[in-house]
């Protein structure tokens, strides 16, 4: 695994998950996730996915500036999510980060691009479930790990304001 590939994978993952690079590295699983995607889909698919992401970012950025969010969204949809081979893989990468589980790719994908030995549904490590980003997104802990402490559940969830969109939950307590 080249360091560049890991960097590219992190960059892709930041865009796919809306979690920061330090959060992704903070799971301790970035390398294992990249290796898992390679084992499940094959090297060529991963290379193509990372290339498509680089191209999307370039397309969305004007003159080397930061990519414009709307243009990046469009570029990702066109180059990755709607792409027959890359779309299902990208969606699986999202779920991998969020759930810690690699979900088996749809049968039509494996029919077209071949089944790798490590392609079926599995948790990557015992830790990967605990590091699922899903739980952070809803300000909860993965059931069975990272407990918040006695009685913390009586307070409102610490969901970031930007996701509450003004729907207050201050009416209690």
């Amino acid at each position: 695994m080249t360091p560049d590939a890991l960097e590219d994978f992190l960059s892709l993952s930041v865009d796919l998950t809306a979690f920061e690079r330090t959060d992704l590295l903070g799971t301790g699983l970035a390398r294992q996730y990249l290796a898992k995607v390679r084992d499940a889909c094959g090297e060529d698919v991963v290379t193509a996915l990372l290339e498509a992401h680089r191209a999307a970012r370039t397309e969305a950025a004007e003159d080397g500036a930061r990519p414009d969010p709307q243009r990046l969204d469009r570029a990702l949809r066109h180059r990755i999510f709607s792409e027959e081979r890359l779309g299902p893989v990208a969606r699986n990468v999202i779920k991998l980060w969020y759930a810690g589980t690699w979900y088996g790719l749809p049968p039509e994908w494996t029919d077209s691009y071949g089944a790798q030995p490590a392609a079926e549904t599995s948790t990557v490590t015992a830790a990967s479930y605990q590091e699922g980003l899903l739980w952070r997104a809803i300000a909860a802990n993965p059931p069975g790990a990272k407990a918040p402490g006695y009685g913390a559940w009586a307070r409102p969830p610490a969901i970031e304001d930007r996701y509450l969109k003004g729907r207050s939950h201050d009416r209690t307590g």
């Binding site: 330090t22 959060d23 590295l25 903070g26 799971t27 301790g28 990272k146 407990a147 918040p148 402490g149 006695y150 009685g151 913390a152």
Partner: peptide, 18 residues
């Protein structure tokens, strides 16, 4: 205690970063 548990998550996140 809640603070300590949050600190735990914070330390873990930092330590796993190169």
């Amino acid at each position: 205690i809640w603070y300590m548990f949050r600190l735990r998550d914070g330390i873990n996140r930092i330590i796993r970063n190169p």
